[in-house]
Write a protein that binds this DNA or RNA. Structure first.
Lengths: 341, 341
DNA sequence: CTCAAACTATAGCTAAAACCTATAGTTTTC
DNA sequence: GAAAACTATAGGTTTTAGCTATAGTTTGAG
C-alpha cells in the first residue's frame, strides 16, 4: 500500500470517474488506473465496480474509504502541527536561568516573548549554573541563561551582559563609604552561597586575588533568603548589583561598590550545539539580546542559527512538467513538480 | 510524504537508532537515513536530534509521531476490515426473492447460511421478479431469486429448479378429479395476481396455449391473501405447487395438477455480470444450489465465480531476497519480497 | 591517549516503480 | 450506426529507492 494509491482511491471515490480523478491528482488516467488496480490486487478485492461508464464503490471499497479518509486526515494534521511549530503557533520552550538573573531579567523578557508568541508554552526554571548545564545535556532544557565561560565542547554560548558584584550590607552596619577595597572584606562576617555554586566560587576567586580569606558566617542557597538575613544584621554579602538594585525598594540595605579588583562575571545564553532548535528557541534568544540592549543601551552579538543543512530551502521552479513522475500537489500531499526547461 | 517514510520514522522513534530501525524494516541503514532526511526536508524541520550515538525525537518529531501512529493504525484497520469482508467475517448481503419462493425456500436457506456465516448481515426482500431485476441493475440488490429466463444482457443467471403451477381450489369446490385439463379452467372463477406480475403473465401464456381465456374475479398481489380468498370460496387460483404444499397444513384447500399443457417455469439466481461479488454473495449462491439439491434430490450446475482477473492469486515465494527494492513485511504493511532463484 | 567499535551521512551505481503517450476495447448517447 | 466517453493494456522513458562502499564523528575500552 502506498500513500499515492490512497490519494488516487479517494479521488476516484469522490468523482466516480477515473478520468476526472486523474485530473484532480495531476496524473494521466492510465497511471491512475494502474495504481488502483495494484491496490486492489494487494488487498485481494475490487474496491470499485466498473459498470459501463459508472464507477461505484464496492462494499469493500466503502469500508476501506472510511479508514483511508481518517488516515489521510491524521497525516494532514501531522504536517499541520509541525507547520504550526515552525511558525511558533504551538510548542513548548523550557528555559533554565540563574536564580539571580531570574528576578530582574526574566519578567520583562517573558512579557515581551508572550506578547509576540502567545501560543508558546514557556517554562522558566531558576537553578544553579551547573544544573543548567546538566539540564541542557540531558535535553531537559532547551536553552539556558547562565554564567560564562562554559568550557563544554558540545555547548554553544552567547554572551549577553557583564554583571558586577557588589557588597551588600545591612542599613545598620557602618561602612563609612560607598566604595570599599576587596581587602576590607577580611574583617566582615559574610553570608554567602554554598561552595558548589558558581557565584560562590567566583567570590572565592576574587578574594584570593586580593589575598583575602572570606569569613563566612552563614551559607544559604536562596538569594532572597540571603538578603533577608543581611537585612536582619546577620552579616554582609556579595551579590550581583543589578539583582540587588531591583530589590532595594523592598529592603533596607546598603550597596557598596568593590574595587581592587572589581568582581564581575559574564552572563550569557547556552545551548547544545548539535541539537535542533525550533523557532521558539531562536526567537527567545534573539529577544534576550534585544532585551539586554534595552536594559543597558549596549549592543550584543547576533545569535547564529541552525544546522548546516538548509531544511527550508526550496527546489527551483521548472517551466514545463517533466515526462517522468510528477510530485503530488501540496496541501493535499498530492502535487505537481515543475522544473526549469 | 510517503508511507514508507512514515514506517521508517516510527521504527527510528521506537529504536532511537538508525541501524536497528533499518534492520526492523528490512532495508539498509543508508536507505533509511536518506528517507528520514527526505521527510525532514519536506516538513522543513528536524524530526530527530542526532547527538553522538543518541537519536532522540525533537519536539516536532514528538508531535508528528502522535498523528503518524494514528494514521498507520487507520490503514491497518482499513486492510483488516477488507480482509474480514473477504473471509465473510463482516459485510452485508441483500437478496431479492420472489414472494412465492420466499416462504418455503428462504427459511431453510437463511438458517444454513447464518450457521456458516454468523457475521454477515443478511437482508431478504420479497418482491416481484421485475423489481428484482431493476433492483439488481440499480445496485440495491446483490443477488436475486427470480423467474427465468431473463433476457437482459448485463445479467448472469443460474437455473435452480423448475417449479410447476397447480390449480388451487377451495375444499368446498367439487372438481371431481385430482388432475384437470387447462381447458377446464374456462368455467372457473379465478383469483389471480395483477397483470404486471410475471406469474400472472405466465398463467396468461399457458391459458392462451390451451385456447382459454381465464375468468378473473379477483386480483391480489399477495399469495397469502390469494390463498385466504380461495379458502373462503371466492374462486380458485393457479400458484406454484411447492408454495402451496408448504402451506397446506394450515389451509383447507385442494391441489389439482394441471395438464395439457402442464404450466411450469424455471426459478433461478440472477446477478449483474460485471459487478464484483464478494465472498458472501458467492457462498450464498453456492448454498442456494446445495439447498435445492437437498429439497429435490436433483443436481444443479455449479456457479462459476468471479472476474477473469484472479484477485486472490499470490506471487510465488522466492528463495533469496533480491538486490533491488524489498517489499514491506505484511502485518505491519512492511514486508520482505522474496523470489525464486 | 590511542584505537577500535558504533553510529549516521554521502557517493555512485543498479533495479524497480511510476510516469507518459498511443491505442484497444466497451459502453452509452445522439 | 457512429461518435463520444470511458477504462485497461502496451511499450518506452524518467524518476525513485534500493544497494555497497566508505567518509566522518562519537564513544568506550585498554
Amino acid at each position: 500500500m502506498e500513500l499515492r494509491q490512497i490519494h488516487y482511491f479517494m479521488a476516484v471515490a469522490a468523482h466516480q470517474n477515473f478520468t476526472r480523478a486523474a485530473e484532480q491528482v495531476h496524473v494521466s488516467q492510465p497511471s491512475l488506473s494502474i495504481q488502483i488496480g495494484a491496490l486492489e490486487r494487494e488487498l485481494g478485492t475490487r474496491l470499485f465496480d466498473r459498470l459501463g461508464r459508472k464507477v461505484v464503490l464496492t462494499q469493500a471499497g466503502e469500508l476501506f474509504r472510511v479508514h483511508a479518509e481518517r488516515a489521510l486526515r491524521e497525516l494532514d494534521q501531522a504536517a499541520q502541527v509541525v507547520h504550526e511549530l515552525l511558525g511558533a503557533k504551538r510548542g513548548r520552550l523550557v528555559v533554565g536561568t540563574l536564580s539571580t538573573v531570574n528576578s530582574y531579567l526574566i519578567a520583562p523578557l517573558v512579557s515581551r516573548f508572550k506578547q509576540r508568541f502567545p501560543d508558546i508554552h514557556l517554562q522558566v526554571h531558576a537553578q544553579p549554573s551547573s544544573d543548567i548545564v546538566s539540564g541542557l545535556l540531558a535535553n531537559r532544557l532547551d536553552i539556558g541563561i547562565c554564567l560564562l565561560p562554559l568550557t563544554h565542547p558540545h555547548m554553544t554560548t552567547i554572551p549577553l551582559f557583564e554583571e558586577r558584584l557588589a557588597l551588600i550590607a545591612p542599613a545598620s552596619m557602618s561602612i563609612g563609604t560607598v566604595r570599599t577595597r576587596m581587602q576590607d572584606l577580611a574583617r566582615l562576617p559574610l553570608v554567602l552561597m554554598p561552595v558548589d555554586y558558581c557565584l560562590r566560587k567566583m567570590v572565592e576567586v576574587e578574594c584570593a586575588k586580593a589575598g583575602v580569606h572570606p569569613q563566612v558566617v552563614l551559607e544559604m542557597s536562596s538569594p532572597e533568603g540571603i538578603l533577608q538575613a543581611v537585612a536582619e544584621g546577620t552579616g554582609a554579602t556579595i551579590l550581583p548589583e543589578l539583582y540587588v538594585r531591583s530589590r532595594l525598594p523592598a529592603t533596607r540595605l546598603q550597596v557598596i561598590d568593590l574595587y581592587d579588583p572589581t568582581p564581575r562575571h559574564m552572563v550569557g545564553l547556552a545551548y547544545l550545539t548539535k541539537r535542533y532548535r525550533g523557532v521558539a528557541a531562536e526567537e527567545f534568544a534573539a529577544l534576550c539580546q534585544r532585551t539586554m540592549r534595552d536594559l543597558q543601551s549596549a549592543s550584543s552579538p547576533t545569535l547564529t542559527a541552525g544546522y548546516p543543512t538548509d531544511l527550508s530551502g526550496r527546489t527551483p521552479l521548472r517551466s514545463t512538467p517533466p515526462k517522468g513522475r510528477p510530485l503530488l500537489r501540496s496541501g493535499t500531499t498530492l502535487k505537481v513538480r515543475r522544473r526549469v526547461g
